[in-house]
Amino acid sequence: MEILKNKKVYSIIKGFIKQKNVVSALVYRELKTRISLVRFGFFGVLLQPLGTLTIFLLIFGFIRQRGVGGLDVSFVPIFLICGIILYTLFFEIIIRSINAIEANKALFFYRQVKPIDTILARVYVETGLFAFLFIIVTCAIFLIFEIFTLDDLPLIFANYIILALTSFGLGTFFMVAGHRYPLIKLFVTLIQRPLFLTSGIFFSLENIPQRFQPFISWNPILQAIEMTRHGFNEDYIINPDKISITYSLAFAIVSCTLGLWVYSNNEKILRTL
């Protein structure tokens, strides 16, 4: 009995190492393909989202001349950047996950490559890329506006990871569902606009009338965004009844479970195409 147990553990570890190798190979492929599409190498990959971010900041920075969430106007750049980065991260992961199978079709030639690995690789690349962007842009803001507020780094970090996990779970779910019923892919692009307006990218939950708050506070993106702002500056007001990391975490766990459950039931269909 003891030997059997050990054998099982051994095979599980071996499986993990195998999968790690496959994912790292896919990450390599992903980065190489991305870099081959743009100029200036790795910097070119960052250039496009960096440009979008700057334009967003300029436009909404001009519009929002008042302070927000109990803080004065100097917090606005950080306020905006949290919203835009987290929202883009969320949808970038979901949409790239949905397209992961199509883009890596040729590589299912090697039986070691499973559809979930292609998603994992993309989530990994996207999470890293946006974390890098996030750091660059916040540093730039700190330098340009000569403010420095970073009260709760662990909270920001935890929120970032939780949001990435949530989008991984939902991305996997939509990938499988979209493969079986292509109309669902349309649903994702449809829901993107309303969520853009209600995820609190341009406003704080506190600015919304009390009775409307429950309609948008369920949104995990809004939760992550508000919490991250709070992480930057503790004086940024959040309502602990409505915004909590426990809720975000629960949402992430549920979505990952859902995604992986649906995936494991359909893996064969996804591979045979």
């Binding site: 190798n21 190489k32 393909t33 081959s36 040729a106």
Partner: peptide, 21 residues
């Protein structure tokens, strides 16, 4: 089993990474 946008060298590296990490 070959990604068209990558060169043979990169494709080879990809497959080797699957087997050898």
């Amino acid at each position: 089993g070959f990604q068209g946008s990558l060169s043979a060298r990169e494709n080879t590296k990809f497959v080797s990474m699957i087997f050898h990490g």
